[in-house]
Design a protein around this nucleic acid. Sequence first.
DNA 1: CTTGTGGAATTGTTCAACAACCTTCTAGCC
DNA 2: GGCTAGAAGGTTGTTGAACAATTCCACAAG
Lengths: 231, 231
Amino acid sequence: MDSSPPDLLGEFAADRLLLGRSSTVRRVTDVLRDRIAAGALRSGTRLSEEALGGALGVSRNTLREAFRVLAHERLVVHEMNRGVFVRSLGPADVADIYLTRRALETEGVRSATGSGRLAPVAEAVAAGESAARDGDWSAVADADLRFHRAVGALTGSERIDAYLAGLLAELRLAFAVMSDPRALHEPFLRRNRQIADLLAADRSRDAEAELVRYLDDARELIVARMRQDAQ
Amino acid sequence: MDSSPPDLLGEFAADRLLLGRSSTVRRVTDVLRDRIAAGALRSGTRLSEEALGGALGVSRNTLREAFRVLAHERLVVHEMNRGVFVRSLGPADVADIYLTRRALETEGVRSATGSGRLAPVAEAVAAGESAARDGDWSAVADADLRFHRAVGALTGSERIDAYLAGLLAELRLAFAVMSDPRALHEPFLRRNRQIADLLAADRSRDAEAELVRYLDDARELIVARMRQDAQ
DNA sequence: CTTGTGGAATTGTTCAACAACCTTCTAGCC
DNA sequence: GGCTAGAAGGTTGTTGAACAATTCCACAAG
């Protein structure tokens, strides 16, 4: 091993996390998180320990460990002696999420000046436009979330990225119960492009102002749609 | 019950969370979190399931549920097949925490204009100054964290408050292993006061600039002290 | 229509067991 | 001596069963 070039050793070290066998709890958590994000588990659904454990082929104790993680991620709600339920977002939650996104994403825009790390941002914008041409609105939604996560990642902060990923996962709870994804995502494709262009032109001040407007408008649209769908 | 004034019913509804009996997992999580914050469990300590479970009088399964929560809060590190360890913060972690604090706390300052919610901020400043007069540097540290959490709370966002609380809990991991708390906290008492005064004078622009300087300076001081203590 | 009451179902927690894994020590080899 | 392989012991990962406590639901009684 001593004769290997240091580059290769570094790559293997990076792979270590990937190939580390994962625990059952981890896999169960991932499966449930994906199912919730995909809308396969509707908001309010109760996740019975016995039924779910039987379906997934894991014990109640293992499942309960996974529930603790998902509850901390706010994707499920744990009610004492009653069980865990898929979270359902209210207008107040959506408003809170957008407020928090503003804090994190504007910090990303502010710290973008001069850094050559704009590639993921541009890539997400292009992916969204491409998906829109294909009429694949689910892919548009994915690209939109990827765009905003990339903006937050401009801070270079591991924690900001983790928080933002969690917030966007929560938002999927709201998207999952709403109809007409096109009306929800199409208007913002152009604005993502605009923000990306402003960043590329090193006009972070303008990009921040536009981002704030974007987030306020998106919040208004979603809250309005939620109140409308609620009837 | 129909004859009760609506005010009373509202108050009882608010009390509902308070009187809810707590689970064993919840109590264990709280105990461990407090012990870690107080420095009673040093960084790097392995938390043996059998030993800790025996000491606390809870089963391994219950303890493992608590571990999942603490790991998600980044207060412990869970290493597969090796156990959980009290987290130890490196300089990179501290830098990341301060970067994230900047995003959240400056948002608080920006949204403070005109709001009459400055009372908790002023209270924390006064508490810090009072504790400093008594030479109680542990209480000064408490008041300092309370001040910054109050600044974040100016956003009115539940999530920002939760994130900030988590970040400050993490920071205690670094404080716990450092000597001379006075040198660590005293220089910042005056600056907390200054920020609070700027907010009270509705000069949020200046308060934000000062807060950014504050956080950068604090980060530098702590990272320097960490490298120094590490030898 | 509200208030008890009983029973079924579910959660909260513990315990015991076993496989898988990590760490350490020992023995043997060059 | 220094290094490698392998055995031994201890710890974690996961399961299944058990029981108390609690919630939920239906139904009877006032």
